[in-house]
Design a protein around this nucleic acid. Sequence first.
DNA 1: CATCAACCCTGAGAGC
DNA 2: TGCTCTCAGGGTTGAT
Length: 287
Amino acid sequence: MPELPEVETIARSLRNAPNLAFSPSPGLNKRPGVIGRTVADVQVNWQRSVAEPDAPTFCERLSGQTIAAVKRRAKFLVFQLDGDWLLIHLRMSGDIRVEPRSGVPLQAHDRVIFNFKDGARMVFNDTRKFGRVWLVEDPDSILGCLGPEPLSTALTPEVFSRSLLQQKRAVKTVLMDQKFLAGMGNIYTDEALHLARIHPLERASSLEPGRAEGLLSAIREVLEEGIRRNGASIDWVYRGGDFQNYFRVYQRTGENCPDCGTKIERIVVSQRGTHFCPTCQPPMIKG
DNA sequence: CATCAACCCTGAGAGC
DNA sequence: TGCTCTCAGGGTTGAT
């Protein structure tokens, strides 16, 4: 599922020069981007993929607007247009393609198709239909409640530690709370907790400053490695990344811990499959 | 406020 | 081989 590194990878490819040639399987840095392209019309194949406004208004208002910039905030793709902002959340199975409008057939699960005036199109494909698109005047109406970006220098170890100390919930639950920290998902949370040698069920408030700082470093390390490897390609959505080959614990239940060899265990935390090493990440002894 | 379960969906994988 | 069944999973919503 796309988390911060996957969305960042897609955002970067969308910022590539728009005049690159379309070819069957180009590397991520050779795919044509969308900056400067103008929307001609929009086709919605699944109404519920459009969160706001209603689908007909969404299509009508987008027509004629030009993409000025593409950014990422948390797991959102953020497109700055002429007056409005287009937001896309890929959720579990969403993906974005940029391709020619003619000569290339649409695919199964193509939900929203943005046709550009220059003959290209951007396609939002989403097998499980969990993803959403928004068209809003003020992006903060959707993004305003998000917590800090984990890679931002504004998030200092001191700030992070102080925030954790105020949270009684399990540390994994807290890290995945988008209001607390923006962009972490199940994969990178499990990976970061293993790297930091912290049990996923430990109360966040029990992490003293030293371990909180270690946790922030681990979060940044796994996110940066994910971005460096162009994200992870799993859930049958191939995005060109290969971080899935370097998971320490995620979906490795019963396999050996890369650090100590103990069998990786799986539990459920906040309704999410959670993978950890019982030796490297021992439960806190209350005292 | 914290916690928890249901919900939205599809297809992979298991079981038969 | 092919059918049916179970389940994962991000984020939202509603119940406890």
